[in-house]
Amino acid sequence: MDYNANHKKELDFTYEGPFNMRIISTLGKYLTDFLDTSYEARMGIYRVFIEICQNVSLYSFDRVWQNKKSSVGYGKLIIKDEEEKITVYTINKILDHHADILLENCNNLNNYSLDELSELKEKLRREASVEDLGAHIGLISIRLYSKNVIKFEIIDKPDEQGKYFAITATVIKTNN
């Protein structure tokens, strides 16, 4: 039996654990190396991937200590490679009282045009501290690089004592 013949060529993978930079980078490079698309499309997917993973790394309420010096966020990532698009999904725990403002910010992102978002990104960047730009600007970048509406969801898991924030970004392979 030809093992490869039964394998689909699209890429699907799931990761759950600490989102440290070495892991994010390795997965991102693997993802883009695997894709047979234009440079423009590959970079679009890579940038969305890195930004969305960094959102988990920086802002997940579940933290994992590394080197006893700093912590990184814990969460879950799912990549789905379909014929004409790639979807990147992440989910991570958040503080309960962040849920409403997060959802409001996210819904606003989808209502802005890309030009308006670029202007907003520049304004927020200019006003931000160099030490922490805040989650909002990263979410704007995800939306700008994906060029598509981003799906956001707050998931309540009462048995796990908390709320979770899920993002799904889609990048069209041919148009990006």
Binding site: M43, Y46, R47, I50, E51, Q54, K121, R125, R126, A128, V130, L133, I137, G138, S141
Partner: peptide
């Protein structure tokens, strides 16, 4: 630079 994240873009602005 072929890619920089939003945090790096703040430092580039500096």
């Amino acid at each position: 630079l072929s890619y920089f994240n939003t945090s790096s873009s703040r430092s580039i602005l500096e």
